[in-house]
Computed example of a mutant assay.
Amino acid sequence: MALLDITVIPLGAGGSGLSAWVAGLERLLEESGLSFRLNDMGTIVEGSADELFEIGRKLHEHCFGAEVARVYTVIKIDDRRDKQVAIGDKVASVEARKAAPDK
């Protein structure tokens, strides 16, 4: 599995709030069946690299419409193939190291 960190920003959508747009993107993620977690700066999605590229495109395209002619999307993908990774694994690893005595 791989992890996708995505932030989608519709430009010129009127106003500075984006929660309505984010809610629409979250519905698409729910429909995809992929595991995901919203955070304050974007969303983390778990899946195969192919699934992640596909959902990234869908999320980007979703914002185009009558109100929006420009969308800025930031995507980072961590595709680790030497072991299984899941959402939260990296944070858990850091927390475990913080809790361990110094060596």
Rank of each mutant, 00 (worst) to 15 (best):
L28A: 07
S93F: 06
D40L: 11
K58G: 01
G47E: 02
G56C: 05
V8Y: 00
K58S: 11
V74A: 14
E31R: 14
D102Q: 10
S93N: 07
A49Q: 11
G12R: 05
L4W: 02
E46T: 02
T43G: 09
A13L: 07
L29G: 04
E95C: 04
P10L: 04
E95M: 12
A20M: 08
G56T: 06
G24L: 03
A69W: 04
D78F: 09
E30V: 13
T7K: 12
G42K: 03
D82R: 08
I6Y: 00
E67M: 05
A86F: 12
L29Y: 06
A86S: 15
S16C: 00
L4A: 07
V22M: 04
K90R: 14
D5Y: 04
S32H: 10
K58C: 01
K76M: 09
R81M: 10
L11V: 15
V8R: 01
E30A: 10
G88P: 06
D40E: 09
M1S: 06
K98T: 10
R70F: 11
V85N: 12
S93R: 08
D82F: 00
L28N: 12
E51Q: 15
V85D: 05
R57E: 14
K83P: 00
L28R: 13
E61W: 04
K76H: 14
E95I: 09
L18G: 03
Q84S: 13
K90H: 07
F64G: 09
Y72E: 09
L34C: 06
Q84F: 10
E51S: 14
A100S: 14
I77P: 03
R57D: 10
A49K: 09
E51M: 07
V91Q: 11
R80Y: 10
L34E: 04
A92G: 05
S35F: 03
R27E: 15
W21V: 07
A49Y: 15
V71N: 05
D89L: 10
K58A: 11
